[in-house]
């Protein structure tokens, strides 16, 4: 550092910070409207083809009339009551099947996501491709393949029969007799299969962010591998668990493809009812009311779940 034998006088401040009179100037508008122009077309699209239809549907659900004479808004709220009292078993079934599929997806998907994130090494990319690639085969074709896999004379059913698993599931009401097809088990199996990637991908994303050294640190602090998982890995992967369960549960609850292709009339879900009412029976008010109840129920459950799980930024 410089040393001085003789101290010079303090220099006059070259240009002291002096407040000067604020000049009145019109604020320059550098593209203040740009965001609105950018948003306009897309939002308009969503308003007209997503939000507006919801309103139309709400209005339809309180209309009465017939196809021939036309419908009028009569605030006939009894439609809701009638729909619920007639179709509550399908509603209940949807929730049960979707819950079962979601739990299965979590149980099956977690090890695979963990494997890709921490244990796959140079195989990581290949496994990722294999998880995503089935998407490119139409999901209907893949769902139909389950008809072959679970066929009555197929190897899966005869194996399950030999080890008497089917006796247990029959007793539980999941299957009936020597069949798996056209039973709740087949539908849940199909739902699980169809939405599994939606569980694996968010799980993987949140697992991949975890620093591997945290595992080592936990081990260093006397945690067994199981404790490490329970106390460190799993809590840190919660965002993935939350968005994964939502991405699985919501479409599963509204699905009717699996119930139609793999199930029977005893496994009809609420999606099947809405589809039939809308496209075959043409009872629009009932269909609209059912669809509205489904939407409200799911939004309610999702809100409660998110509040419980405490992860708000899902987008």
């Amino acid at each position: 550092m410089a040393t001085l034998t003789e101290a010079p006088p303090p220099p006059p401040p070259a240009s002291p910070p002096a407040p000067s009179a604020p000049e009145k100037k019109p604020p320059r508008k550098r593209g203040r409207l740009t965001p609105y122009w950018l948003l306009l077309p897309g939002l308009l699209w969503l308003v007209v083809f997503f939000a507006l239809p919801m309103i139309y549907q709400a209005s339809t659900s309180v209309q009465t009339g017939s196809l021939e004479e036309g419908y009028k808004v009569t605030w006939h709220l009894a439609t809701y009551w009638d729909a619920l009292s007639e179709y509550w078993p399908q509603f209940l079934r949807s929730v049960l099947y979707a819950t079962a599929a979601t739990v299965l997806c979590l149980v099956l998907g977690y090890p695979l996501a963990y494997l890709i994130a921490f244990r796959a090494g140079r195989w990581r990319n290949l496994i990722m491709v294999l998880v995503i690639a089935p998407f490119f085969t139409s999901f209907l074709i893949r769902t139909l393949a389950w008809k072959t896999i679970l066929a009555d004379s197929g190897p899966v059913v005869s194996f399950l029969n030999t080890v008497h698993v089917l006796d247990v599931t029959d007793w539980l009401g999941w299957t009936s007799g020597d069949r798996v097809l056209a039973t709740p088990l087949a539908v849940v199996c199909g739902l699980t299969y169809n939405f599994l990637p939606f569980m694996i991908l968010p799980l993987y994303t949140s697992l991949e962010r975890i620093d591997v050294r945290l595992h080592e640190a936990a081990g260093d602090l006397y945690a067994t591998p199981l404790t490490t998982f329970r106390k460190v890995t799993f809590p840190l992967s919660m965002p993935g668990v939350v968005s994964g369960t939502l991405l699985t549960f919501i479409p599963a609850a509204g699905d009717y493809v699996n119930a139609e292709l793999l199930g029977s009339t005893d496994t009809r879900m609420i999606g099947n009812v809405i589809q039939t009412q809308f496209l075959r029976v043409l009872d629009y008010p009932t269909a609209a009311a059912l669809s509205f109840i489904l939407m409200a129920a799911i939004l309610l459950m999702v809100t409660l779940y998110i509040r419980r799980a405490g992860t708000e930024d899902l987008v």
Binding site: M1, A2, L4, A7, P8, P10, P11, P13, A14, S15
Partner: peptide, 11 residues
């Protein structure tokens, strides 16, 4: 304050 490095340090 504004000045040369020596100024600032010494004064």
């Amino acid at each position: 304050q504004l000045g040369s490095p020596t100024d600032l340090y010494e004064n």
